[in-house]
Amino acid sequence: MIIFGVSVFYIFGLIGTGHFHCPHCGGDRDYEHRTARRFFTLFFLPVIPLDKVGEVVRCKTCRTKFDPIVLSRPTTAQLASALPAGMRAAASVVLRAGGLNDATARAAVDAVREAGAGDYDLAHVQADANQPIEYAAEPLRALSANFTQDACERQLANAVRIALADGPLSQPERDAVHWIADKLGMTPAHATGVIATVEQSIRG
């Protein structure tokens, strides 16, 4: 008796591999991204490839299959680095706008370390202050995409504190804070409110 049929297989058509956050495991795992293809089978073995029926991401640990959209979600490691990277970007923008001095440099070090980069020091501050403002856009957008608005607001407030470390905000510093807020997905009114709250708290 000959047994034949049609089945879908995921063992062929490797598209790529990498590291992702597995929803089933609940942690960062290795994955395989493969094409799902329908095969004509003979005795349950794939013999003749037919049409493609989509793509699938398979966790190499638990073997669970997912839609490729799962790869757009950040890993735990990416989330851990996004917060200090975003704060570092925000600090660089206000330092570039207001000028680098001992007070603002120390405030920047404190803010970035508080965000999770324990090895951040004055040498990093100097290097960041010399970076073009465009370099800060992507880390700030990543911060906005992966954290709550409250978390983004705290980082914006810390950027304001850096700018205020050597005195009242200048107009370039105020403009820089609004630029940061825009990249964090905040409205101008929201940014103005954060600035006013931090200024009031510093005045006493």
Rank of each mutant, 00 (worst) to 15 (best):
L42P: 02
F12G: 13
E138V: 13
H190W: 05
R73Q: 07
V47R: 00
I133P: 04
P46L: 10
H19F: 09
E153P: 03
P168I: 08
T75R: 07
A115M: 05
A136E: 03
S92P: 02
G98E: 05
F66S: 01
R37F: 09
T76A: 03
A136H: 02
D121W: 08
R154I: 04
A163R: 06
L95I: 08
A105K: 05
T76Y: 01
D28Q: 02
F44D: 14
K65S: 12
A89C: 10
G116Y: 09
D121S: 11
A163H: 11
S170C: 08
W179T: 14
V53H: 08
G204V: 13
A111H: 05
G193N: 08
R63S: 15
M87G: 10
R63A: 15
L156P: 03
A127K: 06
D121E: 11
L42A: 04
R88V: 10
D182M: 07
R113M: 11
A77P: 00
R63P: 06
D166A: 15
G13S: 00
R161W: 12
Q155I: 14
I15S: 14
A157K: 13
S144Y: 05
A189I: 01
G118W: 06
P84Y: 05
D119C: 01
A142S: 14
Y135G: 09
I180H: 02
D182V: 07
F44A: 14
R106D: 12
T197K: 15
N146A: 12
C152P: 10
N130H: 13
E199W: 00
L122F: 09
E153M: 07
E173K: 05
E134P: 06
T192F: 11
L14C: 07
L14P: 04
I69T: 11
A107I: 11
R106L: 12
D128K: 00
V56A: 09
A137L: 14
A103Q: 15
F39P: 02
A137M: 14
L156M: 10
G13A: 03
L42M: 07
G54P: 04
Q131A: 15
P74W: 02
H178K: 08
N101K: 07
D119E: 04
G26W: 06
S144G: 14
A107W: 06
N101L: 09
S72D: 06
R96W: 05
P172A: 14
G98I: 05
V94T: 05
A129E: 01
Q155G: 12
A129Y: 03
N146M: 09
T75Y: 04
G27N: 11
A80H: 11
V112N: 02
Y135M: 11
V198A: 06
V6K: 11
D182P: 01
